[in-house]
């Protein structure tokens, strides 16, 4: 569905095509029918078409607030403990190559807990550094 939409008032007069400063509107006459065409990559959303249309047919609001287009969908890696999504599998692989190791998939909170659990003596206060210790 195009972001450039017209209502039932459009009579194909081509005023919008003629007056689009960005050449984002065009048309084709084929098989006895006229088709209005819009190219979003050229559109400056300047509103000239909306201003110029003698039929008040252009629904410009769809060029101001549109829906999201899906671009790409990738598999995700989740935290091993709580299951929150962390990053994509492809990102995880790049990370592993860069760091030359594969770490556990953990969210920041559980990564912190894992790190703390590796030092039980410090946590329990059993290992205290004395002044002069190196």
């Amino acid at each position: 569905m195009s972001y450039f939409r017209v209502n039932e008032n459009c009579n194909g007069c081509l005023a919008c095509v003629e007056n689009c400063p960005a050449s984002a509107l065009s048309f084709s006459d084929r098989n006895g029918r006229r088709t209005l065409q819009h190219n979003m990559t050229k559109c400056a959303r300047c509103g000239q078409c909306w201003r110029i249309c003698p039929q008040e047919a252009i629904e410009f609001q769809y060029l101001l607030v549109g829906k999201w287009d899906e671009v790409v969908t990738l598999d995700l890696i989740h935290c091993q403990v709580c299951g929150v999504p962390l990053y994509s599998t492809a990102y995880g692989q790049k990370l592993a190559r860069t760091l030359n190791s594969t770490g556990d998939a953990l969210c920041p909170q559980h990564r912190q807990r894992q790190a703390a659990s590796r030092w039980p003596e410090v946590g329990a206060g059993r290992t205290k550094l004395k002044l002069g210790d190196k």
Partner: peptide, 14 residues
Amino acid sequence: TIVRQCERDLVLEY
């Protein structure tokens, strides 16, 4: 946020 604040008719309409 609006696409352009410098166009009076767009602001008033949308």
